[in-house]
């Protein structure tokens, strides 16, 4: 068992995040100025998938461990301490956490016991791409079918939708800041699409052609 733990530690040291190869490019192609926007990756974020009947006692046990409720409506996010719980469906949630996946999954699994529920470590399934800056919403609006205007979408909301035709979870964390959770295999495509969509905002030309 000690050997296994040592091996796990080695493997953790060898991990490569989906956008590791683009880190430098993302930094270099950040757009500055009035309509600034930049793309970065939050590496190795812990994510746990929960499937449980929200009316069951197992759901209450999970809420006890997380210290917050499982949101009951689309778009809702509940947060407590290191954990944020995103609504993905009427009986499906995604926990995004700073805690180590092994510790969190073990605690959640223990709380549900043999009840009808699923707790799965899906940390490697997606990565977190952060898009931040004054032009962030304008960039997303080029490829997202959702209405992102503040009247219908705002900070603290997260939904499953599409961006540039690929499925992802879009989570707005601040007025000018979004977290995108695409599948790892789509991460590079999303990052390249975002960088390409951002570049026009580097221009200092304004409407009417005056600089």
């Amino acid at each position: 068992m000690a050997e296994l733990t040592g091996l796990t530690q080695d493997l953790i040291g060898m991990r490569r995040s989906p956008l590791a190869g683009m880190a430098r490019e993302l930094m270099e192609r950040a757009v500055t100025g009035e309509r600034n926007v930049r793309v970065s990756e939050w590496r190795f974020t812990t994510m746990v998938s929960l499937r449980v009947d929200p009316a069951s006692s197992a759901a209450e046990e999970l809420e006890g461990v997380l210290g917050t409720t499982l949101p009951r409506t689309s778009g809702e996010v509940s947060s407590h301490g290191q954990h944020s719980v995103l609504w993905l469906g009427p009986d499906e949630w995604l926990v995004v956490s700073q805690m180590s996946p092994a510790v969190l999954v073990a605690a959640l699994l223990e709380s549900v016991g043999d009840a009808h529920a699923a707790v799965v470590d899906v940390s490697a399934n997606r990565t977190v791409v952060e898009l931040r800056g004054a032009a962030a919403r304008a960039v997303l609006e080029k490829g997202c079918p959702l209405d992102l205007h503040p009247r219908s979408f705002g900070p603290g909301q997260a939904v499953s939708t599409t961006l540039a035709r690929i499925p992802l979870v879009l989570w707005q964390v601040g007025p000018d800041s979004y977290r995108l959770l695409p599948r790892s295999s789509f991460a590079e495509y999303v990052a390249r699409w975002l960088v390409d969509a951002s570049q026009e905002f580097a221009s200092t030309f304004r409407d009417g052609g005056r600089s």
């Binding site: 689309s74 778009g75 469906g89 009427p90 079918p145 959702l146 939904v159 499953s160 939708t161 599409t162 035709r165």
Partner: peptide, 13 residues
């Protein structure tokens, strides 16, 4: 209009 998520574009379905 998805019964759970509200109005969304046809491309999501």
């Amino acid at each position: 209009t998805c019964p759970w998520c509200g109005p969304r574009d046809e491309t999501e379905y």
